[in-house]
């Protein structure tokens, strides 16, 4: 499986020269499966550039949304395949007793916030509640579970042959509790992330910033690392960068995280930080992936 980051920012896009290396686009990660099929995790503004890189003849596209906060869906309306008649797009997301997934997303893709309505998109798009049990796409197994954030939010565990990726970009498992002391069965997201080859996890705040942001649904460095340690993640990708964090700030955050991981007994090389366009290969790398366009 090949993992490519198209947006690692949280909350709101953060463009600017001081953000160039890590990027300013919001959450979007592309998984290319061993079968060559593409899975897209979240539709933040990063999905726009991803869309330009996809071959125009790529018909079937699957998007897994963790939740419907704007930084995870904002790019959907600017995703080029949405405007191709030959595209077949399936969008999975959290269910809600309040309204269907389509109706909730349509609040954004509708007037006055948008010049187009969902029903006007020329592609064949369907909106599906993420199943409560495991399901398959393109030969991989997907599991979705609710995790601690504000509002209905899912984390995903995707297993493709010998590789497992866990994606929990917005997560505050340490809210009101000490993750280091808590029984594993009481930790949000534990089963999703257990012994994942790559854990892509929220790390929005430094430990010093966190006290002013408790309950906002995001993790500080220490909780991210404790969670990664408890679940036995083989590699962790720090994700969902705060829009105020510049490249230099994120360099420091990464150094701190690696040092603390070492203090926890881990190999600092296991801790990476997400940057736009970064690629990570896990397990079997796709041999038959469609040719990509340079963007």
């Amino acid at each position: 499986m090949r993992v490519r980051v198209w947006g690692a920012r949280g909350s709101v896009p953060a463009p600017g020269p001081e953000m160039n290396r890590y990027g300013g686009n919001t959450s979007c990660v592309e998984l290319t499966l061993a079968s060559g099929e593409t899975l897209i995790l979240d539709a933040g503004t990063g999905i726009r550039t991803l869309g330009f890189s996809l071959p125009p003849d790529l018909a079937r596209i699957n998007i897994l949304l963790t939740h419907l906060h704007l930084d995870h869906i904002q790019g959907l309306m600017f995703f080029p395949p949405c405007f191709r008649t030959e595209s077949i797009i399936r969008i999975f997301g959290p269910s809600s007793p309040e309204a269907s997934l389509e109706a909730r997303i349509a609040r954004y893709i509708s007037a006055p916030l948008s010049p187009v309505e969902v029903r006007e998109l020329p592609c064949d798009v369907s909106f599906l509640d993420a199943p409560a049990t495991e399901w398959e796409i393109g030969g991989c197994t997907i599991r979705a579970e609710a995790v601690t954030h504000r509002g209905p939010t899912l984390g995903y565990r995707i297993t493709d042959r010998d590789a497992t990726v866990c994606y929990i970009p917005d997560h505050e498992p340490g809210l009101g509790t000490d993750l280091a002391e808590l029984g594993s069965e009481w930790i949000s997201g534990f089963d999703l992330a257990r012994e994942a080859d790559l854990l892509i996890h929220d790390c929005q705040y430094t430990d010093e910033e966190y006290p002013g942001h408790e309950g906002w649904g995001h993790s500080p460095v220490n909780d991210t690392l404790t969670f990664a340690s408890r679940v036995g993640a083989r590699r962790t990708l720090l994700f969902h960068h705060d829009p105020l964090h510049t490249d230099g700030f994120l360099d420091d955050l990464h150094r701190t995280a690696r040092r603390r991981w070492g203090e926890l007994g881990g190999d600092p090389e296991q801790i990476a930080i997400a940057a736009e366009r970064a690629e990570i290969a896990i397990g079997a790398v796709p041999a038959s992936a469609p040719a990509r366009l340079a963007v």
Partner: peptide, 23 residues
């Protein structure tokens, strides 16, 4: 690092309820 092997994870609403009661 190896993950612990606990019992089944509790549903999120019970996890959050426990967090609330702790507080």
């Amino acid at each position: 690092m190896r993950a612990e092997m606990p019992g089944p994870q509790k549903p999120l609403e019970l996890i959050l309820a426990r967090n609330l009661l702790t507080s």
